[in-house]
Design a protein around this nucleic acid. Structure first.
Length: 290
DNA sequence: CTGTGTTCCTGTTCGC
DNA sequence: TGCGAACAGGAACACA
């Protein structure tokens, strides 16, 4: 569920609490999430100050004052909750308080605390020296940031050239563009009027240059992600922002989870189809997505 | 190298 | 009403 817009929303929510703050204690309620926590994880964090909280693709990166980077991934059901201290020693728990599946609690010297909750435990946390970050297996092969200046039609053309995989699968491939997930791929393809079934390489001409549709696709990706971030992400099931409030981009879905609904493209008489591609639901309109 | 399928995990939803 | 099956999905991994 958390794709790039949700992770960015979380980052923005956590930034004021994390940045410049000193970690007093990190409480681990269990020894693992998706992977075991690295040796000495909590002890290595204690006493550290967080210099900055950044994001790369769907990863949150807490840069610490000792040069290490706290890598956090929300998997698909991870969320953070901020329990702030009002300065008078009174703790305010966010509205969505739920003790079950609270796996990690970051206690800051300021009195604020941040709790990581993850029912499905697909998320994980690691601690790696900043200098090793770029070479780390998780990051070494990662593709371009879809909202950064590197994502251009030409760049995407190089990534898709010659690929026979369906466009849907290619866009989910984090080695090409990093940060897109099932929802936003479906939404971007609909906005660009491109079929998820089409072979990815057909958007590139013989000289390796982007065809018209690819230019539209880059624009659609940027627009849909940007709008979703502005909306605070999408709230499916129980996904919430750090303050407990709900993102509302799900109301702007044109095709995702809308099987059989009339296609929202103006003038299009089609309906939303659902097919399975590489084991995942794809939603699209056969009439206006070619 | 490329493309596809499986797996991890648990809560929610759906059909009988 | 109850129960099991299907589903959700990021990314590592296995495999043809």
């Amino acid at each position: 569920m958390p794709e790039l817009p949700e992770v960015e929303t979380v980052r923005r929510g956590l930034e004021p609490v994390f940045t410049g703050s000193r970690l007093e204690l990190v409480e681990l309620r269990r020894g693992d999430l998706r992977f075991p926590f690295p040796p000495g994880f909590a002890a290595r964090l204690a006493g550290r100050r967080v210099a900055a909280l950044k994001r790369r693709a769907k990863y949150l990166l807490g840069e610490l004052d000792d040069g290490e980077t706290l890598i956090m991934h929300l998997g698909m059901s991870g969320s953070f909750r901020i329990d702030a201290d009002d300065g008078r020693g009174v703790r305010h728990r966010a509205a969505s308080t739920k003790a079950a599946h609270d796996h990690v609690v970051f206690h800051f010297a300021s009195g604020a605390s941040v709790t990581y909750n993850d029912p499905r435990r697909f998320g994980f946390m690691l601690l790696v020296p900043g200098a090793e970050l770029a070479a780390h297996p998780l990051f070494a092969g990662l593709g371009v940031e879809p909202l950064g200046p590197e994502l251009t039609p030409q760049r995407l053309a190089s990534g898709l050239r010659g690929r026979k995989a369906p466009l849907k699968a290619a866009l989910l491939d984090q080695r090409i563009i990093a940060g897109l997930g099932n929802i936003y791929v479906c939404e971007a393809l609909h906005r660009a009027h491109l079929s998820p079934l089409r072979a990815a390489g057909t958007l590139v001409d013989a000289k390796g240059r982007p065809k018209r549709g690819l230019v539209d696709l880059v624009e659609a990706i940027r627009r849909v992600l940007g709008e979703a971030i502005e909306a605070g992400g999408s709230s499916l099931r129980d996904h919430r922002q750090t303050d407990g409030s709900l993102g509302y981009f799900q109301h702007s879905f044109r095709v995702y989870d809308r099987e059989d609904a009339p296609c929202p493209t103006p003038g299009c008489r089609g309906h939303v189809s659902r097919v399975i591609q590489s084991g995942r639901s794809t939603f699209f309109c056969r009439e206006c997505q070619k």
